[in-house]
Design a protein around this nucleic acid. Structure first.
Length: 718
DNA sequence: CTTGGGCTCGTCA
DNA sequence: TTGACGAGC
């Protein structure tokens, strides 16, 4: 349900960026000979040539539509190039598109708060950047405006007779008598044009954009002039836009709510909503939705751009339409195994690249009973704590399915569930992982220990390995989030990490924490930089720690340094209290990670070793605070104590840490990378199963990723 | 202009 | 925890 939020004071500059027929562009980049040709991406489906899920603009000219099947498209456009969505494990695999989306996000997140709204859509809050530009280099002072900006469209701006569109645009951007809001929008136009050109340069993708004072209007505008164009919505044209806009075009009104407005209130355009009082709308749709409707009728939407570059959940699913519906428990289990493999792979990538862990596993299914079709029931979805490891996930998913099936069938009819058809059919299955939280230092160190352990590669035993790992040539499921803007990632994590710190505060550890930060401030400011062997992984995590750390880091690529500089500038210029608070908290979160990298180094040069030793004391003092979280999270990965920690309402006391540490019979700090085999059996198995989907050694991979990122040519990315 | 299905993701209650 | 719903390629 939409929720009304008051519009904050002061005009914001919000952009919505939408990739043009994104999947097609990704395929055309991979196969450049397809560029300029009518092209469509079809989902694997033998029936009638598959379903089109993305259509190039060249193909649209021929009347090819997304709703068509491959065969129909061939009829209206015989020369159309149909590219199939990659398939792995018998199902569509969208990793390549997700990865490409990450590339785009890494460019777009440089100028302001960035929210990844979908695989190919992004919201940006460019308010600060626009205000800085207006203060320092206002558009009216420009003698020249770049071509891309001049190609923009201004809603409600008519080109005068005899004047070409670009001249009109230049006049609009540079006019000195505009009000403050329009001047900020003009800055937004210039910034977004720049960003879009940068996206094209670095990713070869074109996109369209909307620039307005809130998300709702920016989203509306981005679709108005496609492809590869941008549209700005001045405040003065909002009313005119909404008055004639069909309600169904508005985000969140495309479904039942919009239909209800049309049918029950006779509201056809958003402007029609103005006839209804807030009370009336609330009465019918509830306070939240009512107020939300009242606001959007007036172009008001205070929804903030969330700082989020990463998805909140991962899912893998497949449907089994018509005759392909699954009839046996065994076949369901087979498919669940496939789905869990993919999910597990993606979770491992997320863990490795973004240091996040998912806590909940959910199974969704659709089914019908052929016997009594009149008593139709929905198959219930079921969740449980998520245990890492492909095999465990497969077990858990299957158990969730069986629990759901029992409920679905009722108490009877469970007996003959063996391999025989029992009247039920499963038409869709999916597994998803949610409640993804950032991992703090501890678990991370454990990961590294095992990943870097050479003896680990010889441990190739893996139960239930009936499917070979993904072909070496296609690292599916390995999302290149490592390419994301590091400062933004940081930003995103800061909030979560802070939450966990607060939990600790609640347990009376404030003083400990204060000491930790003091120590870290000092060590961070005085030490040179991170040992080289860690910079690959650490660069992302550390880059915005403090000025002294980042400016002295010789290994940091130039571009990254530049980005940090602009970020620091940004922080300095911002007098907003909230932002100051946020940046302080961010630094805290960063430093706890920073500390880990400093102290967990195993193989640095002697000179670096010395540095590590000087920070060792700091690490020891962290024991009470961070160690608590490390243990918690490590145990979560093990899955063994998850239920227990869950009932613990988060957090744990130092006593409990002590207890558990003893229960496990080893200390995390004491684990030697060469003694995997000496670990408790269940941990060995867990680690092996857990690592199985990602065989590539960490170091090699990270190096290649970073190198790729800075290669002048894109060829190695494809 | 809408239409569709498979897949993925998000929000709210 | 679970379900309903919305969105987009």
């Amino acid at each position: 349900m939409p929720v009304a939020r008051p519009e904050s004071s002061g005009a914001r500059i919000i952009a919505h960026i939408d990739m043009d027929c994104f999947y097609v562009q990704v395929e055309q980049r991979r196969q450049p000979q397809l560029r300029g040709l009518p092209t469509a991406v079809v989902q694997y489906n033998e029936w009638k040539g598959g379903a089109l899920i993305a259509v190039s603009y060249e193909a649209r000219k021929y009347g090819v539509k997304r709703s068509m099947r491959g065969d129909e498209a061939k009829e209206v456009c015989p020369q159309i190039e149909l590219v199939q969505v990659p398939v792995s494990r018998g199902k569509a695999d969208l990793s390549t598109y997700r990865n490409a989306g990450s590339e785009v996000v890494s460019v777009l997140s440089r100028r302001g708060r960035c929210e990844r709204a979908s695989i190919d859509e992004v919201y940006l809050d460019l308010t600060d950047a626009a205000e800085v530009m207006l203060a320092e280099t206002p558009p009216e002072s420009l003698e020249e405006v770049d071509e891309e900006s001049l190609k923009s469209h201004v809603l409600g701006l008519e080109s005068k007779d005899g004047t070409d569109a670009k001249a009109t645009m230049k006049e609009w951007v540079c006019r000195g008598d505009a009000d403050h809001r329009d001047k900020l929008l003009a800055c937004g136009v210039l910034i977004v044009a720049e960003l879009r050109m940068q996206v094209l340069k670095e990713t070869e993708f074109t996109c369209s954009a909307g620039i307005a004072h809130n998300k709702m209007l920016a989203k509306l505008a981005s679709g108005m002039n496609k492809p590869a164009q941008q549209t700005v919505v001045p405040f003065s044209s909002v009313k005119g836009l909404l008055d004639s806009l069909p309600v169904k075009k508005m985000k969140q009104l495309g479904g039942k709510l919009g239909t209800s407005l049309q049918c029950e209130l006779g509201v056809n355009t958003v402007g029609d909503l103005l006839k209804f009082s807030e009370d009336k709308l609330q009465e019918r749709y509830g306070v939240n939705t009512g107020t939300w409707l009242w606001n959007i009728a007036r172009g008001i939407s205070g929804e903030e751009v969330q700082a989020r570059l990463l998805p909140k959940s991962h899912g893998s699913g497949k449907s089994f339409p018509g005759p392909r519906a699954l009839k046996t428990v065994a076949s369901v289990q087979q498919w669940l195994n496939q789905l869990c493999e993919e999910l597990s792979e993606r979770l491992c990538s997320d863990l490795e690249q973004n240091k996040r862990i998912a806590r909940t596993l959910t199974l969704h299914a659709s089914a019908f009973k052929s016997s009594d079709s009149d008593s139709f029931r929905k198959f219930p979805s079921k969740s449980c704590p998520l245990r890492y490891g492909t095999t465990k996930m497969q077990e858990d998913a299957f158990n969730l399915f069986q629990a759901g099936l029992r409920e679905y069938l009722g108490l009877y009819g469970v007996k003959t569930q063996g391999s025989h058809c029992n009247g039920w059919r499963v038409t869709a299955l999916s597994v998803s992982a949610s409640k993804i939280v950032p991992m703090l230092s501890g678990t991370c160190s454990i990961m590294k220990y095992f990943k870097e352990d050479p003896s680990n590669s010889s441990l190739k035993q893996s139960p239930n390995n009936f499917i070979q790992d993904a072909e070496p040539s296609s690292p599916s499921g390995s999302e290149s989030y490592s390419k994301l803007n590091s400062t933004e990632l940081q930003h995103e994590f800061a909030g979560e990490a802070v939450c966990m710190e607060r939990d600790m505060d609640g347990l009376g550890q404030q003083e400990v924490k204060a000491n930790i930060w003091n120590e870290q401030d000092r060590s961070c400011a005085t030490e040179k930089c991170i040992p080289q062997s860690f910079t690959q992984g650490a660069t992302q995590l550390l880059s915005s720690g403090t000025e002294s750390c980042s400016s002295l880091d010789q290994n940091k690529p130039h571009r990254e340094v530049h980005r940090e500089d602009s970020r620091m500038e940004h922080v300095k210029l911002n007098s907003n209290q909230h932002d100051q608070k946020r940046s302080t908290l961010k630094d805290k979160g960063t430093r706890s990670i920073l500390n880990f990298f400093k102290s967990s180094n195993l193989s640095c040069s002697s000179q670096e070793q010395e540095h590590v030793e000087t920070t060792q004391n700091t690490e020891t003092k962290l024991a009470l605070g961070d160690r608590c979280l490390e243990l918690n999270q490590f145990q979560q990965l093990q899955g063994g104590l998850l239920a227990e920690t869950a009932t613990n309402s988060g957090g744990c006391s130092s006593d409990q840490v002590q207890q558990r540490s003893e229960a496990w019979n080893y200390k995390i700090d004491d684990i030697d990378p060469s003694v995997v085999d000496e670990l408790p059996k269940e941990i060995q198995n867990e680690i092996r199963a857990w690592l199985r989907p990602n065989k590539r050694p960490n170091i090699v991979k990270q190096r290649s990723t970073i190198a790729d990122y800075f290669l002048p040519s894109k060829t190695s990315l494809r």
